[in-house]
Computed example of a mutant assay.
Amino acid sequence: MANAPAVTIGLASNVGKYKMSLPVGQLLLRGFMSGVYIAVGAGLCTVCGTAAAQYLGAGIGKLIGGAVFPVGLIATVLTGMELFTGDAMLGPLAAFFGKTSWGSVLRNWFFVYIGNLIGSLAYAYLMVMGPFTQGNFATAEPNAFALNAVSIAVGKTLAYKSVGGIGLWSCFLNGIGCNFLVNLAILLGITAKDFIGKFFGIWFPIMTFVATGFEHCVANMYFLPAGLWVYQSFPGIATKMVDGKPWNPLLSKFGGLTWGDVWFWNIIPATLGNIVGGMIFIGLVYYLCYRNELPEEYRAGHQASPGATVGK
């Protein structure tokens, strides 16, 4: 069973109204939990994708990572937590329909972003100290999963840095593509009326964005610190050689990875792209499509509970 498109947009705008009214403590706490959930999917993607491309091909390797990553958004949506990238669409949609203020939208974004960052960092620390190293920092290098975490972080930062300004533009565009698909997943989750429908409505678009290689700022709050912390704990991997060649040419070329690389070459442009992808390419577009078709009970001034459709 599914809601009609106009009803879905009405429900989504009500969800946005509800989320923009949450107190700061709730935004931080729910943001923390969503940051953890997204990091859970990212960590699973790192582990399951390790060496997959080597044996199955690059495309299948991407598919495997994409297939397991959606657990994070599924958990976020179905438990009602707060994710910045989802609120980048739901908040503006509510504001376009006159159900909340733009000040409330910015307030939500600020505190949810902080909550997501803290949750992502906490889970990255757990993975580095746990599965990636088992706490053993006396060896020359960590296990294969940790090395893959470094490769992912390098690919999401130094690959853009290596081409200069156009790399920032590329990361920004990848952020747009990502949040276009993430918020499509959220709308499909709201459209569906049962668990199975919500599960697959969310799963397919998220699998698509991950397998395609788009950039999600909250997922990268896990991917990049996890890889950076592994590199900082085992700096010798920057000069590691395999068959007479650098194990990771970009890491070798730039002499390592820094927090500046993490923020400037990925998280900042990805965040801006995520905002545009969610607010403009989904929020504004669907507002323009259905602003004259919204059922009366979903128009501004009417009371409606977000109910079980609350999502990210």
Rank of each mutant, 00 (worst) to 15 (best):
F281Y: 14
V128S: 02
V262D: 01
F209H: 04
Y125V: 15
K193W: 00
Y55M: 09
G25M: 08
Y231W: 07
A219L: 08
G189P: 07
V210C: 07
Y287I: 07
W109I: 13
N108P: 06
P269R: 03
V128E: 02
N248W: 00
F200N: 05
A149S: 14
G167H: 02
A2H: 07
L93T: 04
T309G: 00
L184M: 15
V163Q: 08
T191S: 15
A153R: 05
I114Y: 02
I74H: 01
V40Q: 04
M81Y: 11
N274F: 03
W203R: 09
G260R: 00
V285Q: 04
A138C: 00
N14L: 08
G197H: 05
F97R: 13
Y55E: 04
T8P: 01
N220R: 05
M279C: 14
E215Y: 00
V230T: 06
I280E: 00
G175W: 03
A2I: 02
R107S: 11
G80P: 07
S233R: 04
F180H: 04
G130L: 13
A304G: 00
S233F: 02
V105G: 07
A146R: 03
E215C: 10
L224E: 04
V230C: 11
P23H: 06
K198E: 02
Y160H: 10
A308P: 09
A192T: 09
Q26D: 12
Q232V: 01
V47S: 11
K240Q: 14
L22C: 06
A226V: 11
V150Q: 04
A12T: 03
L126V: 15
I60G: 01
R291Q: 14
L106V: 14
V163H: 03
G277V: 09
L93H: 11
I206W: 05
G59V: 12
A88V: 12
G175Y: 02
V128K: 07
M279W: 08
T50Q: 10
I196D: 00
N292P: 00
S233L: 01
R107K: 15
I176D: 03
Y18M: 08
F281S: 07
F84L: 15
V105K: 08
H302C: 08
G41N: 08
V68K: 09
G307Q: 10
L181I: 10
M241D: 00
G80F: 11
L257G: 03
P131E: 07
L121H: 05
Y222G: 08
V218A: 12
G43P: 01
G260I: 01
G201L: 10
K253N: 04
L121D: 04
P70Y: 12
N116D: 05
A238R: 09
P5Y: 05
Y18Q: 11
A53Q: 10
F32I: 13
F97E: 12
Y125T: 14
E297M: 12
A300F: 02
L106K: 12
N179Y: 09
H216W: 06
W229H: 02
G307H: 02
G311Q: 10
A185W: 10
V47N: 03
H216F: 11
K312C: 13
K245L: 12
H216Q: 10
W203H: 15
A192G: 06
F97Q: 14
T46A: 14
L121V: 15
P70E: 13
Q232T: 05
G167S: 06
N116K: 12
